[in-house]
Structure formats: structure tokens, C-alpha cells
Amino acid sequence: MTTVPTSVGRADAARPTGRGAGGRPPAAATSVSSRTWVRALSRDAGILPFFAYTGIFLLLPTILVIIGAFTARDGGFSLDGIHQALNARTAKIFWTTTWLAAVTAIVGAVVGSVIAYALSTAPQGSVSRRVITAFNSVLAQFGGVMLAFAFIAMLGTNGMITRLLHSLFSVDVPSNLLSSMAGIVLVYIYFQIPLMVIVFVPAVDGLRSEWRETTMSFGGTTRTFWLSVAGPILAPRFLGALLLLFANAFSAFATAAALISQQTIIVPMAIESAIRNENNTNMTAYAQVLALGMILVIAVIMALYAALQRKTARWEQ
């Protein structure tokens, strides 16, 4: 991730003598400057525990992934891992994951924004709004495997909806729906929409009533308001949310794992099979390259997201 090296650099600068990097005073330091240096450190000591913990469990793994992708089996720098990974199969997997993420992000964003708008019209304390928000939270972030099972119960071979559609409308749901791409898209949409709702409601809430009333008092209709005011103001937030949804779907693993077995059609699943492949230790490097690829994609997405956020943050008065 492009931003990680920076934090690594900063990490080194803030670290005490422990790692011995950065922060070492110049050889000709007088006792005065080393004293102030020590004092500065002890003032900053409060950050150490947090820093150490996230260093080990967050930064270190990320560094290992990035470095590992460029490391040969004997430990030296090598681009072999990358070369090996650059084949048609990997490309196909990345492509599948990308369009899966894109499609579900767009559908989720559009439907979710409508629901978000509806929610924002309710007063913030209303019970129905809060319950719906809580449930959206669950579906969006904590649902994975359980959602997959729910879908199997709904649309599986003997699912409730399958039977309903058959008996009421004589419509037959294909029995392998859920292990096909269409099924996965459907389930993904089911957690993309709630995520959109959660992310976008604050944006819609941020539309101040004064803006609408100003437009109306000057002669603008609701259409004018949405076209010239609400639309342009919400657009960056909408795009940002769309990017988040994309990143979310791109990284998703649990749902696909629960629905599909014996296949690796998306990148996370490919990573899994690479890790679990105990026969071929070369696969670790492959997993790391795949992971690096994911980091790059997500990094680009999040950089765009950050840029959009900065743009809208300017407007907050």
C-alpha cells in the first residue's frame, strides 16, 4: 500500500533505541541535546504501547506481504514470484473479482442511496429508523457466512423462496444458482446495500434544510434543488461510497467461501487455496503476490476515496 511505507518511516522515527534506526543522535551531540532528546522521547512514550501492538499485528504483516512478494525462496530479492503470478489464470481471477465488485457496488449504491434518503427523512430518534440502521449494520459488516446460509435456506434447491416461486408462479429457480456467479452477485448485493445505507445516511443528513428553503424562497422548484444543489453536493459522497462498496466487495471472502467449494474464482479464494496448499511451498509466494495485487487495487481505490473526502470536507462550514 502506498501509504504504508510512510507510516513505517514515521514509525522508525518515533521508535526509541529499540530498533536502533532513525532517532540516533549525531556523533558529536553534546550532553544537552541528548538530554532534550531523551526528554522528548519520554514525553512521547505514551504512544509506545499502541505503536508496538499495531506494529506487530498490523504493520508487520503488511510489510511481510509486500516484501514476501519480492523474495525468492532462498531469501534474496527476486521478481520470480511476480513473474509466476502474471499468467492468464491470475488475470482472469482478478478480472472476475473486479467486475463482481463493480457490479455489486453500483447496484448496491443506487438502491442503498434511495433507502438512505428514505431513512434520513425520519427523525433521528425514531425507533424504526434505529432498528433498521442496526440491522443494516449487521448485514453489512458482520454477516458473511450466516448470510450465505440464509440464502441457501431461501433460494437453495429446497429453499423457501424456491418452493414459493415454484408453487405460486411456476418459476423454477436454477438449482445451482447459488454456486454460480449470478447467485454470488445476488448475495453480495445483499450486504452491499446495507453498507451503502450506513455510509450514505450521514451524507444525506448533512443536507441542511436551509439550502432547500433558500432554493424555494428564491423561486426554485424541487427539481431545481436536486439538480443544482443536492445533486452536486451529494455526488462526491455518492462516488466515495461507491468506492467503499467496491473495496468491500473486492475484499470479501466469507460469503463466497460459504457458497462455493472446489473452485477459486475470486482473488481471496485464490489466496486461501494458495495458503492451504501444503504440498507446494512455492504457493506462499503466490499468495503474497496475490495479496500484494489486492493491496495495490485497494490502495488506488482508497486514494481516490481520500481525495473525494478532502473535496467535500472543504465544504463543511
Binding site: 500500500m1 501509504t3 507510516s7 514515521r10 504512544i47 499502541f50 499495531t54 506487530i56 499485528f57 498490523l58 508487520l60 504483516p61 503488511t62 510489510i63 511481510l64 506481504v65 514476501g68 473495496a247 473486492f250 475484499s251 471472502f253 482473488v267 481471496p268 489466496i271 486461501e272 495458503i275 506462499t284 499468495a287 503474497q288 495479496a291 489486492m294 493491496i295 485497494i298 490502495a299 482508497m302
Partner: peptide
């Protein structure tokens, strides 16, 4: 800002990626 950045980082590093680096650890 450093703490905020680090705390929001896990949102952007997918779990699958993290686990690749966590395996040796």
C-alpha cells in the same frame, strides 16, 4: 492523525491480505 490513520487502516487492508502476513507471525 497518526493514531487515526492506523486505526482506520484495517478498513482498507482486507482480512485476506492481513492473514497472509499473519501466518508466519
Amino acid at each position: 492523525r497518526f493514531v487515526e490513520f492506523v486505526c482506520l487502516l484495517p478498513l482498507t487492508i482486507p482480512a485476506v491480505v492481513l492473514v497472509v502476513g499473519l501466518t508466519p507471525i
